[in-house]
């Protein structure tokens, strides 16, 4: 099957799956209590609670409430975010852009460093670089993101003042417009080096912290597939025909070793989004993670439901992208076959 047909079929399925997800999300969220909780306080009388419920249609039957919510969804209305004091749709784009910028930066670091370290470790198996890489990956997998973030902040923020907290310096932020909400990209569009370096300065530390955990998995996966690839006959064949070691590793061994790693990279994107919750809290990064944390604590169901829907959509898209990447890396893979 052609990639195009496969893509179309997967894309056509997307709304159906999303509808299923929406039912589950709506039902499960309701189990956690009434959505009116965010406005209710212990001092309110039952009459006052009833007035609040009537305002948000919560006195209607549940199927009606679901219909009202899903109807809004189709009109592009995801409800009112109590924690942000704004319509969900107005905020979610900004939050998503913030988290995406962080996750992409972290993902790039994790993939580049992870693949390089993993390759090195696999080639120099049981030698010093291998030990270092393995130590590194154990540390990455076992260090709590939260703690690691604080650990880096002390030298790089408090002592050296290289990388600050937050997302931007207010004066610099307001000096350019932000069409995408990803500040590095906005700065490039505005051709402002000052804004670009300011955005980057704020991005580096949280991205490194977030990347650290994901990197660990990639290093381990890359190392083991590299070890396996290096013992394959085609590598011996390549060497036998006199190819330089560099080319053998790059063009023959690594390309094949990358296949299983790609799956892990795809999955680790989910890890990046989850890890973003802790990183965003520590680094004062106003993204989805910070947003949903306050929503959960406050019982802001409109925000929670929107977040879960978005996350589901991201995972489906990433899975699709991984499948396509597979086909690119290994032409024997036939999509939808």
């Amino acid at each position: 099957m052609q990639i195009r047909d496969y893509l179309l079929r997967r894309l056509a399925l997307l709304p159906v799956i999303m509808l299923g997800v929406s039912v589950i999300v709506f039902t499960l969220t309701r189990f956690t209590g009434s959505p009116v909780g965010i406005y209710a306080s212990p001092n309110m009388s039952p009459d006052e609670i009833a007035a609040l419920e009537a305002r948000y249609l919560l006195d209607q039957p549940i199927p009606f409430q679901y219909a009202a919510w899903i109807g809004g969804l189709f009109r592009g209305d995801l409800g009112w975010s109590g924690v942000s004091v704004a319509p969900v749709t107005e905020v979610i784009g900004l939050k998503f852009a913030a988290t995406l910028e962080l996750a992409i930066a972290a993902g790039l670091i994790a993939v580049f460093v992870g693949v390089a370290l993993g390759t090195l470790a696999g080639v120099r198996r049981n030698k010093a670089p291998d030990h270092v890489a393995r130590l590194f990956s154990i540390l990455g997998a076992s260090t709590p993101t939260f703690w690691f973030g604080l650990l880096l902040l002390v030298p790089f923020y408090l002592w050296l003042d290289w990388f600050p907290l937050g997302r931007s310096t207010p004066d610099i932020f307001s000096s350019i417009i932000h069409p995408t909400g990803m500040y590095t990209l906005d700065a490039i569009i505005a051709l402002s080096p000052v804004a670009f370096f300011d955005a980057l300065r704020h991005l580096v530390l949280p991205a490194v912290v977030l990347a650290f955990g994901a990197m660990a998995i990639i290093v381990r996966m890359m190392r083991s597939s590299m070890v396996e690839a290096m013992s394959e006959e085609y590598v011996d064949a390549a060497r036998a025909k006199g190819l330089p070691n560099k080319i053998v590793i790059r063009r023959h061994a690594r390309r094949n070793a990358l296949l299983p790693t790609t799956t892990v990279i795809g999955l680790s994107f989910g890890f990046l989004l989850q890890g973003a919750v802790a990183v965003e809290l520590i680094f004062r990064w106003p993204g989805l993670g910070q947003w949903v944390t306050s929503a959960v604590l406050a019982g802001d169901q409109a925000t929670i439901m929107a977040y879960v829907l978005i996350t589901a959509l991201i995972f489906m898209t990433v899975n699709l992208a991984v499948d396509i990447a597979y086909a690119y890396l290994d032409r024997r893979v036939v999509l939808g076959g």
Binding site: W159, D161, W162, F197, R201
Partner: peptide, 30 residues
Amino acid sequence: SIAGLASLTLVLAACTAASSPEGSSNSDGS
């Protein structure tokens, strides 16, 4: 090239810290 550009960017980003409008870098920080 990407790696080179990234390192250059990092160095520049760190350097702008010292010259940022609000920045006051010092060794003992606290």
